[in-house]
């Protein structure tokens, strides 16, 4: 998705300086995107350390391929896409070295559709990071990034049905983990309902 935007002079100057590999500009771009992008990386990783590795690896790509960025489109979206791609690469590497323990889905602990709203971002992130990588990747790509199952299947090199299945399992497991890890909130939400 490309958004046509009017770039500020400052942003243009920043990009040009980054293209000249000027360190101050690189630092400024890094700082300005750091929070959001690390948040993205956190969702695709199992811990903060991994997320930081992904972030730095992705920023190296950002600086290297910044010349390919089309002025007039959203820089933020472009960087975010690189983050996601790098995270997916990371996921692929992880899958190579790890036997994923795909657990059976527990019985759906709660049909409360407003379950998420009662938890903080950190709590949600914590449970997302506990998901098996294949569930986590599908859930992030589908639920957060808005990719279609076909696209996810292409990106992760799986079938569409696997993508659907993993998504269902990811959701169930998230709900189950949220209920188990934070039972009080889960109960209070049920009561409210």
């Amino acid at each position: 998705m490309e958004l046509a935007i009017t770039m500020s002079d400052r942003e243009t100057q920043l990009i040009q300086a980054c293209l000249r590999e000027e360190r101050w500009a690189q630092k400024e771009l890094y700082e300005s995107s750091y929070g959001k992008m690390l948040g993205v990386c956190m969702r695709y990783s199992t811990c903060q350390e991994d997320a930081r590795d992904i972030l730095n690896e992705a920023f190296v790509k950002v600086f290297r391929y910044l010349s390919r960025y089309q002025i007039g489109t959203s820089l933020d979206a472009w960087i975010r896409r690189i983050m996601i791609n790098t995270a997916i690469d990371f996921y692929r590497k992880e899958m190579r070295h790890r036997h994923e323990d795909i657990e059976l889905v527990y019985n759906n602990p709660s049909e409360n559709t407003d379950l998420m709203s009662s938890y903080s971002v950190k709590e949600i992130l914590a449970v997302i990071q506990k998901l098996p990588p294949s569930y986590r990747a599908v859930f992030n790509l589908y639920a957060i990034e808005g990719y279609a199952h076909k696209e996810i299947a292409d990106i992760l090199n799986i079938t569409e049905s696997t993508s659907r299945s993993n998504l269902v399992k990811a959701r169930s497991k998230l709900k189950e983990m949220l209920s188990h890890l934070y039972p009080q909130k889960s109960q209070s939400t049920n009561y409210e309902e």
């Binding site: 750091y34 948040g39 559709t113 379950l115 998420m116 949600i124 992130l125 639920a143 957060i144 808005g146």
Partner: peptide, 18 residues
């Protein structure tokens, strides 16, 4: 709704600068 809630929470989440 579950997805939307997750998206709403996580989409604009920013980590503190280190």
């Amino acid at each position: 709704k579950f997805d939307a809630n997750a998206r709403q929470k996580l989409e604009n989440y920013e980590m503190p600068y280190n």
